[in-house]
Design a protein around this nucleic acid. Structure first.
Lengths: 339, 339
DNA sequence: GGAATTTATGCCAGCGCTGGCATTTTTTCT
DNA sequence: AGAAAAAATGCCAGCGCTGGCATAAATTCC
C-alpha cells in the first residue's frame, strides 16, 4: 500500500547534482551556490520530501529528539512545562519524547540512561522532583548526555539548571500576610524530602523574622502537597488553643484543602481566616473564594531550559552555561484579607 | 568525553557468534539455541548494551516510536490520555512523541503527515477534537500510516476508533436529575462544531423525552466548555422568568462557572439549584460543593487505543479492528439534590 | 546408518544519510 | 593572462542494524 518513499537520491537525480549537495542544502551548509540551492529546495518542496530522520541520525549521530523525564503527580505542572518545551522544539525542529519514571526506583539512573541511549536522544530535560537527584545528573554527566534541570533552588551543577526562586516568592507571600496585619500565621509544608519544601519554608521563615515575628514551631506542620493532607494539616493548626489568623499552604491543592477544613469548622475565608497557596494552578482561580497564590512562570522556565539544552547540544557553551533564574510573583485574589 | 558506545559487533565478538545471531536474540527470534541465547543475554546485560534504535529502525523500517496528535485546551484530559498511552508503551517497548497542533490550520494534514514521515513513527494516536477531522484520517489512510482515534461518537472509519459513549452518559445524568424530581432542567452545551457537544445534548434530550419532559429550547444555551462561558450561560438560564431547578453543564469547567453564577445570584447549591458537570476533572472533587459529574475512563480508553494501534502495526488485524466502546458513568456528589 | 528434515548459525547487501577529503569551477590578485 | 585563493561540488566509506538466502549442525525417520 505504501508507495515507495522519495529519498535523497531521487532529489539528486532530478536536480542533476550529487547527493552530497542535496545533503548540504538540507543541512543549511553555506557551501552551496544560490542557484543550486534554490533549485534543490524547489524540488524538495514539489516532491514533499522529508529526509529520513533515522538515516540522518545514524550518519550524523543526531536524532533531533529531546526527552523529558519526570515523576510528578501534578499533571497541570507537567503539562505547562511540556507546552513550553514544545514551543521551542517546534521553532528549532526538534521533537519531544516524554518519559515518566519512578523516582524512587532503584534502577532509576540505569533506566533513564537506557532511555536516552536507546532512543538516541540529543538531550533531556529533567523536571522536579527527579531533577533533585544528583546521582542521576552525575550519571548523565559521565555518560556525556546533554541535560538541563528545572529546580526550585540552586543544585550541584548550576550551569545545567533553570531555577525558580521559590524562596523569595514565599517571602513575598509572608510580606503580603504581615502587611495585612497577620502576626500568627500557620504554614503547611510539602513533603520534607523535597527541595521546594525547604526553600519555600525558609523564605517564609526568613521574612517573618525580618518583620519581627518570632516563628512558632507549632504553626508549622508537614503536609504532602495533596488536598487531603492540606485539610488535615489545617485542622491541626486551627485546633491550636491560639489558632492562626492566616494559613499559608505551600501549594494550591493544600490551600484548597485548607479552605475546605475552615468551612467545616465554621470559619469564613477570608473573614475569619486568610488562606493562600503556591503555584497558581487552575484550582486557584476556580476555588471559592478564589485563591491568593504565587504564580511561577512555568512555561517560560521550560522555554529557557529547552533553549539552554539545545545550545549545549550545539556546543554553544556560553548560552548553555548562562545563569537562568526566574522569580515567581504574587497573585492577590479573594482568599486573603486584612486581619 | 563520550566513551565509544558498545555495538552489536562487540557483543558478537565476546559471545563468539555472528552478529546475525545477536540480532536474533535481540528480536526474540525463536531460531536461536537456548545456550547461545542465554550466553548472549548475559553479555548484553553485563555490558549494559542497548541496540541503536536508529540503526534498527533504518534496517527494519520500524522506529518503536508512537505519536500523539492533539489540539486541546484541556490539559488534564491530555495528560490522562498521555498516561494511559505511556503505560502501554512501557509494557511493549515503545516511546511516545507528543505533537500538539493547530486543528484549524490549513496545513494541518500536511503538517501531520510530515511529522509522522519525518520522525518515522510507527503509528499515531489522535485525540479529540482533532480526531473528528475525517480529512486527516483519510490522508493517513492513503499514506499507509497506522493510526487510532479517540472520539465521543462513531466516526467514518469505525475500526480505527475507540469510542466513549457520551450520549448514554449524558442520558444517565438526565435520569439522575429527573429521579431527584427536577422537571425544568437547564442545559449548557459545548461549542457547536464538536461531536461531543452534539452527542451529550442528544443524550440529554432523548432521556428527557423518555421521561415525558418536553424539551424547552429556552433551557438550552450554547457555551464554550470554559469557566466564564459557563457562568454567563448559567446567568442567562437563571434570568428566565421560569428558571430551571437544575442545570446540567456539559463539562466540569462550565459547571463550576455555573456554581459561581448561582452564588452571585444568591442561590444555594444544591438547595435552590442542582448543578452537574461532565468529565470528573480535578475541579469536580475540589469545588464547593463538590460536583456530581460523569467520569470518562480516559486512561482506559487510551490504553485500549494504544493496544489497538500496536496490533495494527504488528499486522494483527483482528485485534486492530475489534470494536472498542467504553461507557462513562455517573459520579454522584454534593451539587445535586432532590427538588 | 544414511537420507530427509528440522534447527541453528553465518554471510552479504543495503536501509538513507553525512563526514572527510579530493576535485572542479569560479573569483581574485599581481 | 596566469597563478593563487576561494567557492562549489563530487566520491567513497561507513553509521549499526536486519532481511534474505546459504550453509552447517542436530535431529528424525525408515
Amino acid at each position: 500500500m505504501k508507495n515507495k518513499k522519495t529519498t535523497i537520491d531521487d532529489i539528486a537525480m532530478l536536480a542533476g547534482v550529487s547527493v552530497r549537495t542535496i545533503s548540504r542544502v538540507i543541512n543549511n551548509s553555506p557551501m552551496v551556490g544560490e542557484a543550486t540551492r534554490a533549485k534543490v529546495l524547489q524540488i524538495i518542496k514539489d516532491l514533499d520530501y522529508h529526509p529520513n530522520a533515522q538515516a540522518r541520525g545514524l550518519a550524523a549521530r543526531r536524532s533531533y529528539l529531546l526527552g523529558m523525564i519526570y515523576d510528578n503527580p501534578d499533571a497541570l505542572y507537567i503539562n505547562n512545562v511540556q507546552r513550553g518545551v514544545l514551543s521551542v522544539c517546534r521553532e528549532l525542529g526538534y521533537e519531544l519524547v516524554v518519559h515518566p519514571c519512578d523516582m524512587h526506583s532503584d534502577s532509576l539512573t540505569i533506566e533513564a540512561v537506557g532511555f536516552v541511549n536507546r532512543s538516541k536522544l540529543d538531550g533531556v530535560i529533567i523536571l522536579p522532583p527527579v531533577s533533585e537527584n544528583n546521582d542521576l545528573a552525575g550519571v548523565f554527566e559521565k555518560a556525556g548526555v546533554n541535560y538541563v534541570r528545572l529546580a526550585s533552588v540552586a543544585l550541584d551543577k548550576a550551569e545545567n539548571v533553570v531555577i525558580s526562586n521559590d524562596r523569595s516568592a514565599a517571602a513575598s507571600m509572608a510580606d503580603h500576610l504581615v502587611g495585612l496585619g497577620h502576626r500568627r500565621i500557620g504554614y503547611i509544608t510539602g513533603p520534607l524530602g523535597m527541595k521546594s519544601t525547604q526553600e519555600r519554608l525558609d523564605g517564609f521563615r526568613d521574612a517573618l523574622e525580618k518583620h519581627g515575628c518570632k516563628p512558632d514551631n507549632e504553626m508549622i506542620v508537614t503536609g504532602e502537597y495533596t488536598f487531603n493532607s492540606g485539610a488535615e494539616c489545617a485542622c491541626e493548626l486551627l485546633k491550636n488553643p491560639d489558632p492562626p489568623t492566616a494559613i499559608f499552604a505551600s501549594n494550591d491543592e493544600m490551600a484548597v484543602g485548607t479552605i475546605k477544613a475552615a468551612r467545616q469548622l465554621g470559619l469564613n475565608v477570608p473573614g475569619d481566616l486568610s488562606v493562600c497557596g503556591f503555584d497558581d494552578s487552575i484550582l486557584a482561580s476556580r476555588s471559592y473564594p478564589t485563591l491568593t497564590t504565587i504564580r511561577r512562570p512555568v512555561k517560560e522556565m521550560a522555554r529557557l531550559a529547552t533553549a539552554k539544552l539545545i545550545a549545549s547540544i550545539d556546543g554553544r557553551e556560553d548560552d548553555a552555561r548562562a545563569m537562568n533564574i526566574v522569580t515567581p510573583y504574587l497573585v492577590p485574589r479573594e482568599s486573603t484579607a486584612a486581619k
